[in-house]
Design a protein around this nucleic acid. Structure first.
Lengths: 207, 207
DNA sequence: GTCTATAGAAGGATAGAC
DNA sequence: GTCTATCCTTCTATAGAC
């Protein structure tokens, strides 16, 4: 299906996604979205009642896309270490294709925390922790990871994967000045991150 | 000096800081800043030519505050391990007092990367890497950290410290649902983060 | 230096023709 | 379903009195 054949509603949604991710809710203009989609402002309101409605549609879709990338980790019947390797490889690869997504989601959630609440319930995010704990009960004991340290570990893993994208604006400037390449850095990070976390885990063992 | 005695320009600057950090450049309204400072809009333009000028003053100050917290790390005449412990303790404590700062800086830099360029030159951020490498040359070899891995290590440290604040909106909702307390988590994180990174380093040694 | 009043532009939303 | 034209509100910025 070419751009021209696409239905109007779909073109509006895709344009809105691009503009909202680029400019944020407050910075985005309905006119920009209409121009990008090659239609007029009135049609935006015909399909989506208001800017707020259009934004919500985009935000919920993007948040769903992002969360859905986590779930394969919980299906794998592998060791915790291999899951960590799998996660960083998949997650960073995904973010390489959607580099602006983390900053968009994080920023809009901070601006309006209510947005995330319904999503957390819908996708039952909290269950993930329990799933992981039951899947890797023995390994977690071996690594001396008790309940309260689970949050520390999980958020550290998320941080190492997501932060370079959330801080992309700063990192690209820093890398440019020191002659490094951000894409090379990201490629290396897939393995570095996994081994980094696994070494930290092994060092905490009780065995 | 009480609020009432404060000079107008200072009151404007403090109000602008609060509103801009809360709402961002695009979401902030000059009227809100004027109301918060207890003066009228015209005075904002009298002291700061435009919204853009006022924002720049706030942004540069906040970015300077944030970067300046890094520098004590480079003065210490201690081992790399102790520097890491010192950094996490100081940096997370600082962010606990300024929890919205990371999201504000990261977001505005992503929206407009030009903002950060002059700051990076002014504070000579890139020199930090070289300083660290010369201060800990032997230790870095022992930990098998070569040039390209320095970026991976530094950004991982920054990520582990900053991410919980950048993702505060999500984390607070998640913690609430699972009965954990975000402040407890942050207190624990000061030690957890340091030992996590140090274990990861030790595991990579060539010795 | 501080205020009131308002200019001037931009943005979201809608009416109504086709 | 799509367009043009326009309403109405909001926002930045300035003019001018005190």
């Amino acid at each position: 299906m070419t751009d021209i054949e696409k239905q109007t509603e779909e073109r509006i949604f895709e344009s809105a996604t691009e503009i909202f991710i680029e400019k944020g809710m407050d910075g985005a203009r309905m006119q920009d979205i209409a121009d990008h989609a090659g239609i007029n402002k009135a049609l935006l309101h015909y399909y989506y009642r208001s800017k707020e409605h259009l934004f919500e549609a985009v935000f919920e879709k993007m948040a769903a896309v992002m969360f859905s990338r986590f779930s394969p980790v919980f299906d794998e019947k592998t060791s915790l270490e291999d899951k960590i390797r799998f996660f960083f490889r998949e997650h960073i690869s995904f973010l390489q294709k959607n580099p602006r997504l983390p900053a968009f989601i994080l920023n809009e959630v901070n601006r309006n925390p209510a947005r995330i609440k319904k999503l957390i319930q819908r996708y039952n995010i909290n269950e993930f922790w329990n799933t992981l704990e039951s899947q890797h009960h023995d390994e977690l004991i071996r690594y001396n990871i008790r309940r309260e340290k689970m949050a520390q570990l999980m958020t550290s893993i998320a941080a190492i994967s997501i932060f370079p994208f959330a801080a992309r604006g700063i990192m690209e400037v820093l890398f440019e000045k020191s002659g490094q390449d951000f894409n090379d850095y990201l490629e290396q990070r897939k393995d570095f991150a996994a081994e980094f976390v696994i070494r930290a885990l092994k060092g905490s063992g009780t065995e």
